[in-house]
Design a protein around this nucleic acid. Structure first.
Lengths: 343, 343
DNA sequence: TGGTCGCCTGAAACCGGTTTCTGTGATGCA
DNA sequence: TGCATCACAGAAACCGGTTTCAGGCGACCA
C-alpha cells in the first residue's frame, strides 16, 4: 500500500509530531515517549515509509558503500575476490561498487570518480597509476589488494614468493627435474611478478640455470591451451615441467597435454597456483599453492570499514597472508589420501 | 593543493558570486557572463573543488548507479555478465553496485535495500522471490536477465530452447547416438530448466526415450569432474553422450574422461553450452552453443538506463537474443577449419 | 525620453534526512 | 512550597548541491 515517496516531514505531519521525533524513532536514538513512538510507528507502518538513503547519507557524511577496483574479470580468482569482499561488506550494510578498468587509459579518472561515491576503495595491485592511488588515498581510505602501494598505503597480499620458492625447489630437488618453464606474464600483475622472481631464485639457489624468459600469456584457461600449443608442438624439445602462474593456465596446459596423448606426470609435470576447486578433482590432481583469496578480500574490506569508522587513525603497513604448498599427483608425487572427490 | 572539503558556498564566497552562479558554471547550464565564469573557474581550479556526489544526487533525485544481482559468481558466464553490464553503465557515468545473494534467506531484503540506493536493477532469473521482484519494480526500473519475471517486468534472455533443441537433434539424428545424459540442475536456474526441457523435447520429437532425470550438479568445472566420476565409474553402463548445461561442466567431464583414458568423441561424446573461450581451444574442441552473454547484460543496462531516464514510459516485454549452435569435434563432427587457435 | 525586452545575477526554496539547542512540564527533594 | 533536575518534544540549523523566481541593468525602439 505504502508509497515510498513519503518523506520525514509528511510522516511527521500525519503522526502529529515533529520531524526530529520521526527521525529519532526510525533510528532508535534519543529519548521518545511510548505514546509518541506508537504514533510514529503507526504512521510509518501505514504508509510504508522508509528513509531515503541519499538524504541519510548526505546528513551522515558517508555513503555506506565500498569500492572494489580490478583490471578485468577472469576465473575463480576474481570470483573469490569479489565474494570475499562482498561477504564482509554486506553485513555492515555497505553496498559494493565495482569497477573493471580493463586497463583503459582513463582508468585513473574513473577510479577517482569512484572515490567520490564510496567510503573506501580496495584496488587490485597494478590496476592504476601510483599518482592516482595517492590522490585517491587523500580522499578515502585505500587498500591495495595483491600488490603494494606507494607511500604508506595499506596493502594485503598473499605470500607468493615463499610458496613458489618451495614449489620450484620441490620440482628441482625432490623430483630432480630440469628444463622447467614458467607460464605467465610477470608484467601483468604484481602477483605473477613475485612468482616469476621466486621461480628464478629457486633455480639460482640450487645452481640450476633458469629459463631466461617466461612464456608470457594471460591468466585464463584458454591461454594455457595456447601455451601448450606453443610448448608441445613438434620440433622444439619438450620441457620436463610447466610451472604455471595460476591453476587456470595449468588446467589449460593439462587439457592440451592430455589431448596430445601425453601422460601427466610421467611425460610432463604441470603445476598451478591458487588451488581452485577443480584442481583437486582433475585427473591427475593438480599440484598447486593454496592462496586465501577470499580472506584476502575480506581482510581488505575489514581494513577499509575500520578506517572509514575511525578517520585520522590511519594505520599503515602491509599485511601478508600465508600460502600453502599443496602436493598432488601432477608433479609426480603420490596422490593424496582423499579419493576422487577431493576434500 | 586543493582541499576537496570545499563546498559550493565557500567557492561562491571566494569567487565573490552566488552559489547559483557556481552551480551554473560547474554544470554548464544557464547563462553566465564571461567575467563571472572566469572568476568561478579560477576559484574552482585554485581550490580543486569537485561537487559532492551525494548533494548532487539528492538534488537531482537520482543516484547515478545501477544494481546487478546474481546468486553467486562462477566462471566465465558471470564474468562476462558483469563486464557487459559494466561496460554499458560506466560510459553513462553510472556506477555499478553488485549483490551476490548466495541464495541466502534474507536475499529479498538485501535486494530491496539495494533498490533504495540505485536508479535501476538487473536481477538474474531465479535469484529472488517474485514478490520481492514486484516490490522492487515498484521502486525502480527492473530487468530480469536470463529468466522471466512475473507481471509485466522486462526481461532479456537468450534463446536457450532453440539451440538446445538443434543440438540434441544433431546428436540423436546426425550422429545416431542413443543413451544421452544431461548434466546440470534444472532447478538451479531458468536457463538450465529451459535447456533440460528442450533436451527432452528433442528426444520426444524423434521418438527416443529421454532419461528420466538429469545428473543434477552445479555449474562449475569441479562439478563436471564429479559428474564424470559418477557417470564413468566402472559398473554402470557408460552413456554414449554427455550433454552439459554449460561449458565449464563439459570441460570438467572432458578432463575426467581423458584422465580415465577414454577417447573423445570416439568413446564418449561431450557437448557444452556458452562457448567460453577455452571451448574452441581444448583438444578435442568442444561442440557447444554460443550465447551472447555480454550483449545480454549490456542490453539490460541499456534498458534500465533508458527507463530511468524516462520514468512512466515503462515498456514491457521480453527480449530474446539469438543463440548459435557451434559444431566442433567433441560431438564427432570434423574439426572446424580454424586451426588450434580458434576463431 | 519613456517603455519594453532580454540577459544576467543572486536570494531563497528545495531535495530528505540528522542533530543541536531551546523550552516545556513533571517530578523529586529540601 | 520553592527550586533543581530530568525526560521529552519541537524549531531550526545543517549536510551540499540544483533550480525557481524576482529583479537590476543595458539595449533597443518609438
Amino acid at each position: 500500500m505504502g508509497n515510498s515517496r513519503m518523506n520525514v516531514r509528511e510522516i511527521a505531519k500525519l503522526a502529529g509530531v515533529s520531524v526530529a521525533t520521526v527521525s529519532r524513532v526510525s533510528n532508535g536514538t534519543g529519548q521518545v515517549s511510548e505514546e509518541m513512538r506508537r504514533r510514529v510507528l503507526e504512521a510509518i507502518e501505514k504508509h510504508g515509509y522508509r528513509p531515503d538513503h541519499l538524504g541519510r547519507a548526505l546528513a551522515a557524511g558517508r555513503h555506506g558503500a565500498l569500492g572494489l577496483v580490478f583490471p578485468g574479470l577472469s576465473g575463480p580468482y576474481f570470483t573469490d575476490l569479489i565474494q570475499g569482499f562482498e561477504s564482509e561488506a554486506v553485513p555492515s550494510r555497505a553496498s559494493v561498487h565495482i569497477l573493471c578498468t580493463h586497463l583503459r587509459s582513463d582508468s585513473d579518472d574513473q577510479v577517482l570518480e569512484m572515490g567520490r561515491r564510496v567510503d573506501g576503495v580496495a584496488v587490485m595491485g597494478g590496476t592504476i597509476s601510483d599518482e592516482a592511488l595517492l590522490q585517491l588515498a587523500r580522499m578515502v581510505p585505500v587498500v591495495v589488494v595483491a600488490g603494494e602501494g606507494p607511500g604508506d598505503i595499506l596493502s594485503v597480499r598473499a605470500d607468493n614468493g615463499g610458496s613458489m620458492l618451495a614449489l620450484t625447489r620441490h620440482l628441482l630437488a625432490d623430483h630432480d627435474l630440469r628444463e622447467l618453464v614458467f607460464v605467465g606474464n610477470p608484467a601483468g600483475s604484481p602477483d605473477v611478478s613475485e612468482r616469476w622472481t621466486a621461480f628464478r631464485r629457486a633455480h639460482h639457489d640450487l645452481g640450476v640455470e633458469p629459463p631466461a624468459e617466461p612464456v608470457a600469456v594471460s591468466m585464463q584457461q584458454a591461454d594455457g591451451v595456447l601455451a601448450a600449443d606453443q610448448l608441445l608442438a613438434g620440433g622444439t624439445p619438450r620441457p620436463a615441467g610447466v610451472v604455471c602462474a595460476n591453476d587456470e593456465i595449468a588446467l589449460g596446459v593439462l587439457v592440451g597435454a592430455l589431448g596430445r596423448g601425453l601422460r601427466v606426470p610421467q611425460d610432463l609435470v604441470i603445476t598451478g597456483f591458487d588451488d581452485m576447486p577443480a584442481a583437486a578433482l582433475v585427473t591427475p590432481s593438480l599440484t598447486t599453492v593454496r592462496q586465501p583469496v577470499r580472506e584476502l578480500a575480506a581482510e581488505a574490506a575489514r581494513l577499509i570499514l575500520h578506517a572509514a569508522d575511525q578517520p585520522g587513525n590511519a594505520s599503515a603497513g602491509s599485511l601478508v597472508l600465508p600460502t600453502e604448498l599443496v602436493l598432488r599427483s601432477s608433479c609426480g608425487c603420490p596422490a593424496p589420501p582423499t579419493g576422487g572427490t577431493g576434500s
